[in-house]
């Protein structure tokens, strides 16, 4: 192994944490949460500011909490509470909804999303 090889190896190993962050780090983390109520203009809230929001939907108020970079439905007037059961959402592209109350919540970020769309 020559000195040049050794230098390249050192630089490469030093670059790995950066590459890790680039691929799995903040770029996939969301920065804002986009909340849409049917027939209304979307509202955006920063994921960096902890707060609790009461969003009025078709059935009543859904309570959405933003905490430590994550957002979740914590109360909703729907019967099955699937929106609440979906848990916390923090990655760019994460989406959940309370369809009975006509409210969707999606996480958006500055970085690239891993997929352009998801089938489910």
């Amino acid at each position: 192994m020559t000195r040049v090889d050794l230098l390249i190896m050192i630089i490469a190993v030093a670059a790995l944490p950066l590459l890790y962050l680039q691929l799995w780090g903040p770029n996939y983390r969301g920065t804002e949460v986009n909340i849409i109520v049917a027939d209304q203009k979307p509202q955006r809230h920063s994921l960096l500011r902890d707060q609790t929001l009461a969003i009025k939907g078709k059935l009543g108020d859904s309570i959405i909490t933003i905490n430590n970079g994550k957002a979740a439905f914590i109360e909703s007037p729907c019967r099955n509470k699937q929106c609440i059961h979906s848990g916390w959402h923090s990655r760019n592209g994460d989406t959940t909804a309370c369809l009975p109350n006509r409210i969707t919540l999606s996480v958006v970020g500055d970085g690239i999303a891993r997929f352009d769309s998801v089938t489910f």
Partner: peptide, 17 residues
């Protein structure tokens, strides 16, 4: 070492893209 060199180049590609 060749792969490492390629990796460095690719990490640059990722950062730009």
């Amino acid at each position: 070492v060749s792969f490492l060199f390629a990796l460095i180049l690719l990490s640059g590609v990722v950062a730009c893209s």
